[in-house]
Amino acid sequence: MSALRLNMMLAAALGLAVAGSLFAGRVWLDPASTPNAAVILAQLRLPRALLAAIIGAGLGASGAAMQGYLRNPLADPGLFGIAPAAALGAVLCLWLDLATQPFALPGFALIGAGGAMALLALIAGQTAGGTHGLALFTLAGMMIASLAGALTSLVISLAPNAFAMSEIVTWLMGALTDRGWSDVALAAPLTLAGLACLLAAGRGLDALVLGEETARSLGIAPRPLLFWLVAGVGLTVGSGVAVAGIIGFVGLVVPHLVRPLTDRRPSTLLVPAALAGALLLVLADALVRVLPLVTELRLGIALSLIGAPFFLHLLLRMRRGLA
């Protein structure tokens, strides 16, 4: 399937999913008969659907870029430690009881993501392109993720009261409940900037198909490539965590779903992965809204419930391949 045709099909499916999801919810919306339907659509459902699409696009493209960079189908944007660091920032904001201040929660999360990006660049930038550059880079990301996770646990354990602890833990589960246009205004430009950075890394990711050494022989400079990648993943994942909390598995699962429909070059996977990520998150968010549960299932939990078995399926397939 040609790249253009695939992208157009995914974009059409995304458009339909966004339009359909506007009507889906605990209460199915009928514009003709539901009271205040226009307000519900404009102020609640539409920003929420757009936010799902924006965050999903960022996570899908980041996952595709990470897998391309590490040349590993099991790589995930979480490996960089940016999402856990952004979550740590947000948790600190909740712990300090500053979440009611305008933009404080996403602001803290973005500071966390920025800190992780700076730390990664500082550690891995020195070794980019070296013999063990990729291994050191992965280890640095994992250590940042591990440290941010430990600090998040520490903050939770030091929560001043049970309500604060519950608030933090619930936020960490990831959700789009009660998000509005201000969240869209925050996430959209940052995600778009992140996607532009990832697209700028496309040529370098293609060269890495042949390994680091050959990529350098093809004129690809390792440090600028690392810069575009860290900036792209940082902006997309950081802004996503800032407005919705941790939403896992999209970055891992989506590239796998889309890759067989592309020519498998990392650069041609970026746009379809962004569109498919957006589509998946819009559908998943519509699903959690219509499930007949006492409280709405958190989006992060729903995606983990879908993603974890998929990951296991992948591992089993790889094991069979190795055997």
């Binding site: 391309g68 040349r71 040529r203 293609d206 060269a207 890495l208 198909v209 042949l210 390994g211 050494e213 050959t214 022989s217 093809l218 004129g219 690809i220 020519d263 498998r264 070059r265 990392p266």
Partner: peptide
Amino acid sequence: IGYLPQSGEVAWDVAVRDLVGLGRLP
């Protein structure tokens, strides 16, 4: 300068035409 390493690594299962096309990156 075209460099052909010993390893022959190809990380993703691309088609031959796309593999050869990577030579045009510079």
